[in-house]
Design a protein around this nucleic acid. Structure first.
Lengths: 199, 199
DNA sequence: TTCATCCTAGGACCTGGTCTTAGTAACTCG
DNA sequence: CGAGTTACTAAGACCAGGTCCTAGGATGAA
């Protein structure tokens, strides 16, 4: 039963390969493993791996949302409610891609990004940047968990707003932060010398 | 020449629609505009809009790369050099997706992610988390610019390491930060109660 | 009327698949 | 030894969503 071992190994590697390079066609995969296209198809069938075009589409759809969330004009996570200039909250459902594959711990910058974008969203001004932040990661967040983020304006003087943010996972505080957000009124403020990059 | 107007309008709307909903097939698009599939194909030809599967793939690839850059297992940016436990530097070439489409200003969490991941990389321990950070965004970074990030261990006592990080764009300081990184020696540390999520 | 523009229609062909049927090599067991 | 199982391959019909090309009808302007 040497074959069976080979098959198992190949299928394990196939899963990994497809995860790492989702855009390979069956033909390319077959080349990689030195088997026929049909064998790859059977493997995919057994392993419930969808065809390349569907993998691509799924990726695109997921990432399209993610992209929009991560670098779109809106905020990271889903806005739950907001009182401009006062407070707000958002929810971020963490996914596999956000964490370490080994530990399944969500990478800090995603938590940061949610908090930061919410802080920025509270400030009612056309051009807003984070100038400073003091942040504290309290507990790890695991892939699949949802992060509930609450932000509250603590102080607003001139064009500087201080926002207190805390994030929780099922009631437990996982992150706290103090963000100092700068609002800029001038037209071409974004190109200004002293502006600070954030959103 | 009512047609010509209609055509122009339709094509304008087509561009927008395809941008907003890139997963529509020609048939679905044809339905939307009440024209034949062939007309849509001609429009796509004239407007150099690729077919749906290619749009999907391009989207997936772009976003996949972005995801990898943001949540890959290694560090954000390219590691230039490192002396474990002492200092290190990395370079991040910023891309269109990292910034606001309007202002072309790179979103802060990318800058943060580069700095943070470099700080974490300096600590020579199997499981490392950022516990605290105090950060300061000094100047905006624009899409296309490369961020040169330098990190230096300032203090290491017990399992806590303080790392000073500063990022520059063509010599100008755009970001400074102080990261407090916690190293954990226990085997199943990642699941520990008091661990802090980061990498 | 004549002509150009716009739209549509149809067919051959392509990629990257699906699903099904069938055949072969190799190893295992009674 | 032969029979059966497992792994693999091969071939063919079919499909979606296209490309590329030829051709023809409608419609409005000269």
């Amino acid at each position: 039963m040497v074959r069976r071992l080979n098959k198992r190994k190949r299928q394990e590697q196939l899963i990994e390969l497809v995860n790492q390079q989702p855009f390979l066609t069956d033909e390319e995969l077959a080349d990689q493993f030195g088997v026929s296209v049909q064998t790859i198809r059977l493997d995919r069938l057994e392993l419930s791996i969808p065809e390349m075009r569907e993998r691509t589409k799924a990726l695109a759809e997921a990432a399209y949302g993610q992209l929009k969330a991560m670098s779109g004009q809106e905020l990271v996570g889903q806005l739950l409610d907001v009182e401009l200039g006062k407070r707000g909250s958002s929810l971020l459902k963490t996914t596999e891609e956000m964490g370490f594959s080994k530990t399944k711990v969500v990478r800090g910058h995603h938590i940061f990004a949610q908090a930061n974008s919410l802080a920025v969203a509270l400030v009612d001004s056309p051009v807003v940047f984070t100038a400073r932040a003091e942040i504290h990661f309290r507990h790890p967040v695991y892939v699949g968990e949802s992060i509930f983020c609450q932000a509250e304006v603590a102080n607003a003087s001139g064009n500087r707003t201080t926002v207190h943010v805390n994030s929780k996972v099922s009631g437990r505080k996982v992150f706290v932060g103090r963000f100092e957000v700068a609002a800029i009124e001038t037209r071409d403020a974004a190109a200004g010398e002293t502006a600070n990059p954030e959103g």
